[in-house]
Design a binder for these strands. Structure first.
Lengths: 123, 123
DNA sequence: GTGTCTGTTATATAAATAGTATAACAAACA
DNA sequence: TGTTTGTTATACTATTTATATAACAGACAC
C-alpha cells in the first residue's frame, strides 16, 4: 500500500494518513488481519515523525479500523458499529449537502455522485 | 435566524457559525439580499468575540455565500460556481463514503440518506 | 459638522493543536 | 541477549483558535 503526504496541504498529516488508510480498507487493498508498517517504519518511509504516525493509528483505532498489538503492530480490525456509522455519515453529509444545495446542486446530481464513488471504490 | 454555539464542541466556533448560516441559506430561512447581523451585534448576541464572527463571515465570503459591505453589513450574495461546487462535494463525499463503506453501509442506504437530507432541507 | 454605525486592519495575548526530537519502558520473540 | 513492537514522557517550535483593545475610513442620519 502506497501512502504519500502532501506537505503543502492544509489537511493535517495524520489526517492524510488516516484518510488514505481508510481508502485502502474500503477498496480492499488492505483487509481484516493485514498489518500496517510499524509507526517507526512508516514514519521513516514517508519522512515524518513517529508520533505523527502514532496519532493517525490512534485515531483509526478509536474509530474502529485498527487494533494495535505489541506483537504484530498495527493490524486492520474492523469494529462494525453500523448504527454509529450511519449516524456519523448523516451528520457529515448534512453539512456538505447543505452547502451543495446553496450552489444549486440537484438531488439527482448528488445521487449520481454517490453512485460513481461507490463504483469507483468497489469495482 | 437563531444562531447558537456549543462551547464544548470540538468544532471551531467560527465553523459552527459558518455551518449554521449555510443551513439557513439552504433552507431559505435567509435569502439572497438579506442582511446578517453586524459582526459586533452577532458577537454580542451569542457571547463571543467580534473577530470570531468576522472570521466566519470572511470564510463565507471566500466560499461565495456573502458579500461584505460597509453600508449594509453582511449581505447574502450567492456566487454560484456549480463546477466548483460539484468538485468540492465529490472530494468531501469520497472521504466520508469510503469510511461508510468500511462499515458496511450500502449504496442503497447512502442514497436513502441523501434523499432524506434533501427532503429535510427543501421541504 | 457631529455622532454613530459599518467592515477592516493592527497588535497583543492565551490556549490548544500539530509536528518534530529524543529518550526510555515493558511486552514479545528470535 | 538483542531487536522490534506499541506506549509514554518531556521539550520545543509553529500554527490555529479565540479573545481583547484600539484605531481607521466609508456611509449616513441628525
Amino acid at each position: 500500500m502506497i501512502l504519500s503526504i502532501d506537505f503543502n496541504s492544509d489537511e493535517a498529516i495524520y489526517m492524510q494518513l488516516r484518510n488514505q488508510i481508510i481508502f485502502g480498507i474500503a477498496t480492499e487493498e488492505i483487509r481484516e488481519g493485514d498489518s500496517l508498517p510499524s509507526v517507526r517504519q512508516l514514519a521513516e518511509d514517508v519522512g515524518i515523525n513517529m508520533h505523527t504516525v502514532n496519532k493517525a493509528y490512534s485515531v483509526l483505532r478509536s474509530e474502529g479500523f485498527l487494533k494495535l498489538d505489541r506483537r504484530y503492530g498495527a493490524v486492520i480490525a474492523l469494529d462494525i458499529n453500523k448504527i454509529q456509522a450511519i449516524e456519523d455519515l448523516k451528520n457529515e453529509m448534512r453539512v456538505i449537502l447543505a452547502k451543495a444545495i446553496c450552489k444549486n446542486v440537484t438531488e439527482q446530481e448528488a445521487h449520481a455522485m454517490v453512485h460513481q464513488i461507490y463504483s469507483d471504490i468497489l469495482d
